[in-house]
């Protein structure tokens, strides 16, 4: 695809994107299912507290996400942690969340903010899941960056 920007992806996300791009459509779906199955459950401290999460309506099934940013002297030193909640009946949404979790969790705020907004287009997923469905991942990434920006603003 020529329409995507050439801003590099952070290494963990780039690795996932490579895996997807080199896979057949069937294998892409299988990989996405693995990310769905492996999406970490919410930690105890968030149990029953979805009201503190941001709801991503652009996904076909509702997804809840929140972001924590550790303290630190600069954006480069402040680590980002991501938390997602989506039902088992929404494996595609969970799969997108799983990719972003594995690709972004633990990076610095500076690295997360530098992720290009078109990153979801670099997985070769459009033909496998349809471009319409990819909007969910674009929306998740947008919310994550916005929350990181808000939480590092002061």
């Amino acid at each position: 695809m020529s329409a995507v920007s050439d801003t590099p992806l952070p290494a963990p996300l780039a690795e996932i994107a490579d895996d997807f791009r080199s896979a057949s459509n069937d294998l892409k779906l299988q990989l996405l299912l693995e990310f769905s199955d492996e999406l970490p459950a919410l930690p105890e401290r968030y149990a029953g507290r979805l009201d503190q999460f941001e709801r991503v309506d652009e996904c076909q099934s509702p997804l809840f996400l929140t972001v924590e940013v550790d303290d630190g002297a600069s954006l480069e030193q402040r680590e980002v942690h991501l938390f997602f909640d989506a039902p088992a009946e929404a494996p595609t949404t969970r799969g997108f969340a799983g990719i972003l979790h594995e690709g972004l969790d633990g990076l610095s705020a500076a690295q997360v903010l530098a992720v290009p907004d078109d990153a979801p287009m670099r997985f070769g997923l459009a033909e496998a899941v349809s471009p319409l469905r990819l909007r969910g991942m674009v929306a998740m990434l947008g919310r994550i960056k916005r929350q990181v920006r808000a939480k590092t603003a002061t």
Binding site: L29, Q30, L32, L33, S36, Q60, S61, A88, E89, A90, P91, T92, T93, G95, E127, A128, V129, S130, L132, R133
Partner: peptide
């Protein structure tokens, strides 16, 4: 299904997947 992966998480025995978007559009 609406969700393109739902079939793969488990389906009725003998069922084959058809995707409205990928197969019928």
């Amino acid at each position: 299904d609406e969700d393109v992966l739902l079939y793969a998480t488990g389906h009725i025995p003998g069922a084959v997947k058809i995707d409205w978007h990928v197969d019928l559009n």
